[in-house]
Amino acid sequence: MNIFRFLGDMTHLISILILLLKIYATKSCSGISLKTQELYALVFLTRYLDLFTDFISVYNTVMKLVFIASSLAIVWCMRNHPLVRRSYDKQLDTFRHYFLLLASFLLALLLHEKFAFQEVLWAFSIYLEAVAILPQLVLLQRSGNVDNLTGQYVFFLGAYRALYIFNWIYRYFIDPHFTRWIACVSGLVQTALYADFFYYYFISWKNNAKLQLPA
């Protein structure tokens, strides 16, 4: 474990706590893409298949359980909670996320560390996570003004993988045999997808103005 990865995991956890706070405190999920949340739940379920077979550390196991439980709870809430589901921007959340599923799965069949069930699904989860934010970014552009908590949620979500890039650089310097090309290249793509969001987030922070994404 290194400071970059620990900060990355904490940033990821903070983003999830912000989303849970928004849904719990406002009983609303306006501006949140259910499709992105469903993709994240799938990312965690397919990535943490080794939850019961490979014990790495208490920290690792606890964090995996937290990520799986929180992502499923958010999807369940957005689908079934009477107040929350009513605030879901169904008509704006129209990104065809099934294409992201198919593309990630096909790529995982081609590019993986080992052609084994768990490894192909692990690679699938890495590719899927890289593009899972797309429905959310499209929804933000369509919904115009972004409420504060939603903006913070997306910011921390983007920042976590950027910190992981520093973690991979650090691990590579420590041990040149450390090569995680699949995770690293996907992490770069994932972070790049946030580039314009980060730009408008920075502008709104600098001008102390409301976060506005151009349509």
């Binding site: 080794d50 080992k114 995770a183």
Partner: peptide, 10 residues
């Protein structure tokens, strides 16, 4: 033969 690489990252 490199041992099965365990994914130690989240």
């Amino acid at each position: 033969e490199d041992e099965d690489e365990v994914h130690d990252e989240l």
